[in-house]
Design a protein around this nucleic acid. Sequence first.
DNA 1: ATCTAGTTTAACCAATTGGGCAAAAATAAT
DNA 2: ATTATTTTTGCCCAATTGGTTAAACTAGAT
Lengths: 205, 205
Amino acid sequence: MAIDKEINAEQKIIEAAADIFEEKGFEGARMQQIADKAGINKALLHYYFRSKDLLFEKVFLNIASKIFLKFFKSFNIEGSIFENIETFLQLHQDLLYENRKLPIFFFNEITRNPDLIRKLMLKLEVSNSFQLILKQFEKEKRDGIIRHDVEVSHLLVNIISLSVFPYIGRPIIKEIMEEFDLNYDTFLNERRSMIAQFVINSIKV
Amino acid sequence: MAIDKEINAEQKIIEAAADIFEEKGFEGARMQQIADKAGINKALLHYYFRSKDLLFEKVFLNIASKIFLKFFKSFNIEGSIFENIETFLQLHQDLLYENRKLPIFFFNEITRNPDLIRKLMLKLEVSNSFQLILKQFEKEKRDGIIRHDVEVSHLLVNIISLSVFPYIGRPIIKEIMEEFDLNYDTFLNERRSMIAQFVINSIKV
DNA sequence: ATCTAGTTTAACCAATTGGGCAAAAATAAT
DNA sequence: ATTATTTTTGCCCAATTGGTTAAACTAGAT
């Protein structure tokens, strides 16, 4: 924390804003609250970022870029995706667990303002990265590692759905489970191996 | 529309509020906008519902109840779920397609205010209804219709994940698909049969 | 030491927002 | 027809919010 002292105002703002925006969303976040959390005067927010919109855009693209890069990186593995599916499903789960609040935040904000997606896609090469994954799936289909009748774009969406949705549905899943004395975090943990098995069963030849 | 004339103010407010809240969320919605859409004076909102919070709660529970009831109803089918999985996955997809904006709205609001879930569960018997579905799955497991190593609670979450997530991720899925001249609605349509196949492959004996 | 450029603050502002109130209009009861 | 009750409206209000501004502070250059 001694090193943290040297951090400049601009960076302090970005970090505080990330926390507040992630928790309250764009509409619910207050500039004053961000300033308080950053420990600076509210006017500094405008000095560095002009407006709430611009501050949000900066922070949003920051957060989303980091996660997407880590996600894409997880696919850079020797050997076929099919054979390593358990490995990087574990990586995804780690990523999700460390950023539980991110999914609902991300999807809510891009629904509110779809322009954010376009800006994100310009900053990263989102489409390209997805395309690379799909090509790898296609190759494994041709090589007979994956069933021939599997539609790869659906496979990718399926994997993401199975991983991400339980985090989006957390409040209701948690509440229902607790009614039956079950634990939500245990449930998430079970899914780590379960999702892999579920997917493998559906696509193995 | 001639009959609609007879509709009273209270009902007009509820319908207008549902539209606005669903589109803008609680934080983004404005009481004035709801009044305008309902074609009545803003003070009437408070006359009938006291506050924005109470109006929202009423509307939210209304919307959520309707959908959940329809969802649970879809499981009331003769014969095993496994054998009819295609049938009611179709029903779910119809339900989702008619209410595309609902999922992200619902999950965002219960994340913002988890108390809504508790109130919903008191109004309906959500836990009980889910429990019934799980029991049916268990029975089909014992009867050897479903693989014995399938964990039924995960199966249910998997099915819901595969169905619902593509609607939550709509903005980004749509944007990426359009980059490759593919159509999002077509994609959703393909999933109707695909999800069933994907699930069947994972749980058939 | 003082000048200069960038940084930070306190105080302020206009606009918006949820909400309240008293009068008016409509409806029901006598 | 008149009274009582409910519904609806116009107008107002205090609080909040994003944003501005001018002054004060800081540190490096001369």
